[in-house]
Amino acid sequence: MATKNDLASQPALKVMNRRDLSKRLVAKLKRDEAIIGGIGNTNFDLWAVGHRPQNFYMLGSMGITVPIALGVALAQPDRGVIAIEGDGSLLMSLGCLATIGMLQPRNLTIVVMDNGMYEITGRQKTATHATSDIVAIARGAGIENSVWARDEAHFDQLIDRRFDEGGPHLIAVKIDDEHATEQTPRDPALIRQRFMQGIGTGRKSALDG
């Protein structure tokens, strides 16, 4: 059943590519912004476009990307924090958008890579394929600055700004179903430790020399 929503009233949204958009995003960062990459292809592509010390890659816990990013944003209010999440994962935990709508963390940005499917498990359709509009949901949850990126140029324009102020923002993009070409190393403790070193909270000891 098709329903009228914001998406239907938008000008045509170009279907883009996750790895290309991840690359564009990372290239814009100037202030050691933290990125939390959601499970599956979302963080695989973040890894594929080039590791940076402020990246945290999720290897499990579907749906918890945005809450982790919120926690980092609350703990480090002067650092821009970006969550990159898939549509399936976000649909699992829509409540976190309400929490963010309530708290209004100015240094948090959510990028939703929406291909309307659970790509990694066999391309089963999600609700965003037909009826659910992530941007409308986010606005309804109180994240006023929620927009669909129409194409790459529009995406570039939306991310050409400081990430440590003016938020919360949500940028949703329609993407294709191309699988990531690389997989993130499967070492959660090491990923967590390196991430903390990257954002200045890592343990220091004599082992560091």
Binding site: A34, I64, V72
Partner: peptide, 12 residues
């Protein structure tokens, strides 16, 4: 969600 928030905060 709360566990995710606390995890992120501790890392921060």
């Amino acid at each position: 969600e709360a566990v995710g928030i606390v995890t992120g905060a501790w890392m921060g």
